[in-house]
């Protein structure tokens, strides 16, 4: 099984003059960690949206966990996404009025698969994840997310992406709000946890100093346009 396989993906934003994405082929093996870099505005976030099934892509172009995302309709895509994909964004990952722990458990409330894969005691699993990501203080777990520091928020977001062992984690510049030290520590932790869970990781960033944490690095500009 491939967590992700892309073949001849062309995508154009509605109303745009030319297509944003034109990718010949890209695939990730189970547990593989891929670093994707490229300049601002080149279409990295668009690619992640396409993989997550938020934008309409042609059928057959994107397979997530061997399932054709483009063939699914709206609601099914949302459900499929949470079953197989964990997501981390640059900022604003958490629902501010839920506690850190509740934020981590969100995928389990929307996905039976994620719930089943997070063990007997999902809350315990969530606590362990937070613990491993350096949020061991139990008072942190029950704090509303709005009271966490940005670095803490990103780690909670990582725990949420990891819980229930999804096949693939999409991370869209999750470190750009962090300082150098926190950045490296975060990527390190994320990479380690992905390896432990057997989850593939597609990590998007323009910051090439993080490259060495990954199995493979791809230049988006080289990848894109290949099929255009």
């Amino acid at each position: 099984m491939h967590p992700l396989r892309i073949e001849r993906l062309v995508y154009r934003w509605p109303g745009a003059a030319r297509s944003t994405l034109g990718i010949g082929a890209l695939s990730l093996a189970s547990g593989e960690r891929l670093f994707l870099h490229g300049p601002s505005g080149c279409g990295k976030s668009t690619l992640l949206s396409a993989i997550a099934g938020v934008v309409d892509v042609p059928t057959g172009a994107i397979l997530v966990a061997d399932k054709d995302v483009g063939a699914l309709n709206g609601g099914a895509r949302d459900r499929f996404r949470v079953d197989h994909i964990g997501m981390i964004f640059q900022v604003f990952n958490l629902i501010p009025w839920l506690s850190a722990l509740e934020n981590v458990l969100l995928p389990c409330t929307f996905s039976k698969r994620r719930l089943e894969r997070s063990g007997e005691d999902p809350a315990g699993t969530a606590r362990n994840l937070l613990d491993e990501l350096g949020l061991s203080d139990p008072s942190l777990a029950s704090k509303p997310a709005s009271e966490l520091s940005v670095g803490q928020q990103q780690r909670v977001a990582a725990a949420r992406a990891l819980i229930g062992k999804p096949d693939l984690i999409l991370a869209d510049e999750p470190t750009s709000a962090l300082d150098e030290v926190a950045k490296a520590a975060f990527v390190d932790l994320l990479a380690r946890e992905c390896a432990e869970a057997g989850t593939a990781l597609l990590f998007v960033s323009h910051d090439r100093s993080l490259e060495h944490h990954f199995d493979r690095s791809v230049d988006f500009l080289a990848l894109n346009g290949g099929a255009a």
Binding site: V54, M87, L94, L106, P107, F110
Partner: peptide, 8 residues
């Protein structure tokens, strides 16, 4: 956020 965790 809710959509990203699977809410339709």
């Amino acid at each position: 956020i809710l959509r990203s965790v699977g809410a339709t």
